[in-house]
Design a binder for these strands. Sequence first.
DNA 1: TGTAAGCTTGAATCAAATTCATGGTTCGGG
DNA 2: CCCGAACCATGAATTTGATTCAAGCTTACA
Lengths: 300, 300
Amino acid sequence: MPDLPVLPPLSALRAFHAAARFGRFRDAATALGITESGISHQVRKLEDWLSVRLFERSGPRIKLTSDGERYYAAIDPAFGEIRAATEALRTPAGRNRVSLTLPASLATYWLIPRLDGLEKACPGIDLELVTTSRLIDLKREGVDLAIRYGGGQWPDVTVRRLMPEQLVPVARPGFVAAVEARDPAGTLAAKRLIMHTHYPQQWAEWAAANGHPPPALAGALRFSSTDQILAAAAQGLGIAIGARPMVDQMLEARSLVAPFDGPRGDSGASYFLAWPKDLKPTVAAGKVARWLETQAMRDL
Amino acid sequence: MPDLPVLPPLSALRAFHAAARFGRFRDAATALGITESGISHQVRKLEDWLSVRLFERSGPRIKLTSDGERYYAAIDPAFGEIRAATEALRTPAGRNRVSLTLPASLATYWLIPRLDGLEKACPGIDLELVTTSRLIDLKREGVDLAIRYGGGQWPDVTVRRLMPEQLVPVARPGFVAAVEARDPAGTLAAKRLIMHTHYPQQWAEWAAANGHPPPALAGALRFSSTDQILAAAAQGLGIAIGARPMVDQMLEARSLVAPFDGPRGDSGASYFLAWPKDLKPTVAAGKVARWLETQAMRDL
DNA sequence: TGTAAGCTTGAATCAAATTCATGGTTCGGG
DNA sequence: CCCGAACCATGAATTTGATTCAAGCTTACA
């Protein structure tokens, strides 16, 4: 049986935390609902236990030593985590909080436009969006749900397929003339293309799925964010390879059009809903998950 | 005066933490050096305080409820942080630990080759390298020192300039013939170039500093990591724009050569040593900082 | 120089953590 | 089917340790 780490006396630590935060024992005492003397005793106890001086005392003024500063900076987040976790478990508001991590582009172009529907479907839900590109450890970071992009194979998470990503060339209305639209391969060779730096294969995939030769990308405009790509296409800078469902909104609003008919290229990857394998989602998270699934269905 | 967050009874929390970790009260009790009964009372107290059931009890077996699992996952890191911070402050070993964050390429090509010198200069130092590209919050993440790349203007940190980044075209020995080397502009137009996706301006900067027209990058090989760029150049795939001091090792080993003489292009950016503004570095961190500065001097 | 503000100290008190002794539940083996 | 082993629960007793109280120091500043 592994030994448990040695922890300092925790109530002494709490007293030190308050004292360091306020910079004076008196205020710390008031905040904790005890007396100055209590703080003084507890801080002293912690210092003895650590054999390290945490405060410089010079009469009525105290000041953190540099060890004290460092220690405070290191333990402060821990208290924050405990408080947050406790509040989430204990308060009714916390129980309605659902944190969802998803790619920024999907948040902007797919989720946010639908978000007022969520309030109707699950009243009272308090959704927290975490848009980050890296694959975070859901359980460690306390995230309830994730929408991830890829093949659906990740360790330690349960996944459900939400929707495939479908590729479709898009451009500003009128950028591709009606006659040109009948010759996709020729048009792509003639016009400037726009591509995503991180997904350089998208054009080739679309071309392959539609029986065209892969277009030359030498002079293509490159961006590393979907925002910029769609904005550039809408400005008439070229033809972009857009991904459904992200471009749906702009196609409906006709700020972009899909000039070429025909089957859409399925990029092979999909968006998946994921949550930590060994954690049953909360009631609130379950509702959000179901709502996300119905929204995804509608787009197919 | 802001109110302090309401925290659960901390010793009850510690008991729960141990119980959840071992999955049985008996082992938790042994680990904490108290009796089963103590754990039982404390866990019950926490459950009452939270008004949430944390364990399912069915006779001699207990099991975390899903609330309990979630709560444990959320508080466990906090205990880890407290333990780590305490150990670093309290143990002699911890006081010699210095964590340094720096770009991965600088770690690989500049720091690591010099690392045995550090042991001689500062015996007993226990250096922890954190290679990450994002600009982390040093104080929050408990990092003592950082080497950052850029203009030297960052909030909340004290910086000292370490060394400028100098650009220099590099290639496999023999890839550029002696006669070609006398006509850099022509050679760059004729040969394939290698560039870093994230720093597309490097070639233009070098060219400007040396009075050449900016080379065309349309057909250039693009990589998003310095590793790959230098490996590609060493393979004879093209001419790369390397950055001193990263390429120094490979130039010395003659796995790469700098075919063009003349002034090197200073990229304008430099590497800076940084630490949290309001935290005095530890003695150990101070030693490492001084050693890094002397190493940087030598390269100029 | 005196006084107010604020921390310290040590003894006394009180609350909380822990133990002890006992009882109850489940599970597996004979 | 029953018994014993393994484990957790419970409540009263006890011990630990957190907190207060009252008095004393130290420093800043008027």
